[in-house]
Simulated scan of single mutants.
Amino acid sequence: MSHHFKETPHNAITESGIARVIPCKELDVGDPIKWLSLGLRDLMKAPMLTLFFGAIFTAIPWLITYFVAKTGWHLVIMPSIVCFMLIGPFLAAALYDISWEMEKGHKPTLRHAVKALKRNAVNEWGFGIMLMVLMIFWLRIASLIHALYPDYMGNNFEALLPFLVLGTIAGAAFTAIVFFISAFTQPILMERKVDLGTAVLTSVNAVWVNKVPMFIWACIIFFSVVVGFITGFIGFLFLMPLLGYATWHAYIDTIETKRERTYE
């Protein structure tokens, strides 16, 4: 049995003729909540692996905070948050594998999860390099914004406001770009033997076609990151694995296949 690919007249990329993309389904606004529910189920089934990878995600913002404390450069906090969101999709590959293994009816293992990065190695590492380049580019922009801040001005809110607004706008723009290109790229590269360009443009296309559900999903991710920081990073122990598992289910829901998956 094969899926019937839905016609999507508002599909900007495929109509442009500039690239080949994997067709996507049209999502409902309630789908992000369903993904969270399925992710929570996976979290409960693999508590030790969840804690292991959650600890890694918790260590990253702790190191960022340590760097800020050492340098005294407090304006690095906002770009650091964006960097955290840039690197996250790449590091989450092992979490996708855990959910994938459970869908197959297998017992997930740390060894198998770590090996996930080798499944489509050239393109997966290419994706990681792409995220790193974007991160470096963002840090350069953040440094430029910081350099514009005159030393003679005080640290009161009114003096900082223009720079906070500028930094927030720039950070939001970069975060949106990264979300478009990374929402489904890593899961696509894990499951399918496709090139990086096809995976990235498929992700961009899927987000574009499903603007409202994916905006809700992006907000869930953003607020999860905020909660993680508010809780002194402890929340990341569970929130980041939960988002990783949920992202796998989002991918399964969103990106079409030519035939039904047969896991067993």
Rank of each mutant, 00 (worst) to 15 (best):
K107H: 12
R111C: 03
A113L: 06
A113I: 05
L117H: 15
L117F: 15
K118Y: 07
R119D: 07
R119K: 15
R119E: 12
V122T: 13
E124P: 02
E124L: 14
W125Q: 09
W125I: 15
G126F: 04
M132K: 06
M132L: 15
I136T: 12
I136F: 14
L139G: 05
R140Q: 08
A142W: 03
I145P: 04
H146A: 14
P150N: 09
D151V: 10
Y152K: 12
Y152C: 02
Y152Q: 12
N155L: 11
E158W: 11
L160T: 04
L161M: 14
L164C: 04
V165A: 10
L166T: 13
G167L: 04
G167S: 10
G167V: 02
T168A: 15
G171F: 04
A172Q: 01
T175W: 08
I177P: 01
F180A: 07
I181V: 15
I188M: 15
E191L: 12
K193E: 13
G197C: 03
S203C: 09
V204F: 08
V207A: 01
V207I: 08
V207N: 02
W208H: 11
N210T: 10
K211E: 08
K211H: 05
V212R: 09
M214R: 02
F215A: 15
I216L: 13
A218T: 05
A218L: 09
I220Y: 04
I221N: 03
F223K: 01
V226R: 00
V227E: 08
G228C: 04
G228F: 00
G228Q: 02
F229N: 09
